[in-house]
Simulated assay, not measured.
Amino acid sequence: MYYFIVNPNSRSGKGALIWKELRRTLRQKHISYKAVFTGYRGHAVKLAASVTAKASPEHPVYLIAVGGDGTIQEVLSGVKDLSCIYFGYIPTGSGNDFCRSMQLPQDPHEALDCILKRKHIASMDVPVISIKGRKSHFAISCGIGFDAAVCHEVSVTPMKKILNRVGLGKLVYLFVALKQLLFLKPVPVTLRMDEERIYPFHKVYFAAVMNQKYEGGGFKFCPDASPSDGYLDVIVVDGLSKLKVLFCLPTAFWGKHTQFTGIHIFRCKKVEVFSTVPLAVHKDGESAGIQETFSVSIEKEPVKIILP
């Protein structure tokens, strides 16, 4: 039995249309399944908790997220015991950073075929972000500052819906990034890693904690990040001029930004982030509010994920 948690509003409403096509395929193949639909932000957390409430390692649930990267974050956050599920993903969003890093099909029909065949099951680390005592999972990245501010604005700008309709949704990240960079003021941020290593920075544009290589619609911010090595990769952009950041950002699509002075990359098991002023924070591209501090670690149990 497959359980699908579907975000019908993903990709500006195209998620519902894509699901209808996938449902037709499931019926034609006589696949046993149940589907539930999200109705508001955070709903997938509750749905995943309900679907997996009676799951166990002996009787696992095949749990499939159908939506964008933010849907993955919510679905994983709703699962209390990750050892009790097999996780699959069908992309109907516009960013698709999860697919890039995990080398999953970006075509929804190919992704469904991959899930039904179940040829390869792998383990994936699941990070936990803790903000003011509240914890949630994420799959790709979380961050504070510039990248989070871009995610916040992208999620509410009408431009995203307009560009999605003509297949150019990824351009919205570029437009918003340029706008945010113009008005951004770098601030002091301190990182504490693995309880002992302390790194103070004075003019930080953003700091991102990565479980995958990509975020923000294709930026390869941590080229060596692996979702199965038990480590978090952390990137800090500090002390550059805005002109240099502007020049540096496009090179991040190929992971070449690491050659610039002011780009710092670390690896750790746990990281605590402290900002001197409240800044935007995101988790898998979804808003986590305006915060001064948060911490990230990795769950003891990885999740089993269905790959091609």
Rank of each mutant, 00 (worst) to 15 (best):
M1I: 14
M1F: 06
F4T: 03
I5G: 07
N7L: 06
R11L: 02
R11N: 09
S12G: 01
K14I: 00
G15V: 00
G15K: 04
K20C: 06
L22N: 07
R24N: 10
T25H: 12
L26T: 14
R27A: 03
Q28P: 09
K29Q: 13
I31V: 15
Y33R: 06
V36K: 06
T38K: 07
T38V: 05
Y40F: 11
V45Q: 04
L47R: 05
A48S: 14
S50T: 12
V51P: 12
S56L: 09
S56C: 06
E58K: 15
V61K: 04
Y62H: 15
L63V: 07
A65T: 01
G68N: 03
D69Q: 05
I72G: 04
L76C: 13
G78K: 10
G78M: 04
S83W: 00
I85R: 07
F87N: 12
I90P: 08
S94H: 05
S94D: 00
G95K: 01
G95H: 01
F98W: 04
C99I: 14
S101T: 15
M102Y: 15
E110K: 07
D113C: 06
D113A: 08
C114L: 11
C114V: 10
L116K: 07
K117M: 06
K117H: 14
D125C: 03
V126E: 01
S130I: 06
K132P: 02
G133H: 15
G133V: 07
R134K: 14
S136V: 05
H137F: 10
A139P: 00
G145I: 02
D147E: 08
S155T: 08
P158N: 05
L163G: 00
R165A: 08
R165D: 00
L168G: 01
L171M: 11
L171D: 02
Y173Q: 05
F175T: 00
V176Q: 01
K179M: 03
K179D: 03
Q180D: 00
Q180C: 06
V187S: 11
P188K: 06
R192V: 09
R192K: 14
M193V: 07
E195F: 13
E195R: 14
R197L: 13
H202Q: 15
V204P: 01
A207L: 13
V209G: 11
M210K: 10
M210C: 09
N211F: 00
Q212M: 08
Y214R: 03
E215C: 09
G216S: 06
G216T: 02
G218T: 11
P227L: 06
D229T: 13
D229R: 09
G230E: 04
L232F: 01
D238Y: 09
L240W: 01
K242Y: 13
C248F: 14
L249A: 14
P250G: 07
Q259N: 11
G262Q: 11
K270C: 05
V271S: 05
P278W: 15
L279G: 03
V281Y: 09
H282G: 13
K283H: 10
G285S: 08
E286T: 03
A288G: 13
G289D: 11
I290L: 12
F294A: 04
S295K: 09
V296A: 07
V296Q: 07
I298N: 11
E299M: 13
K300T: 15
P302W: 08
V303A: 04
K304D: 12
K304A: 09
P308S: 08
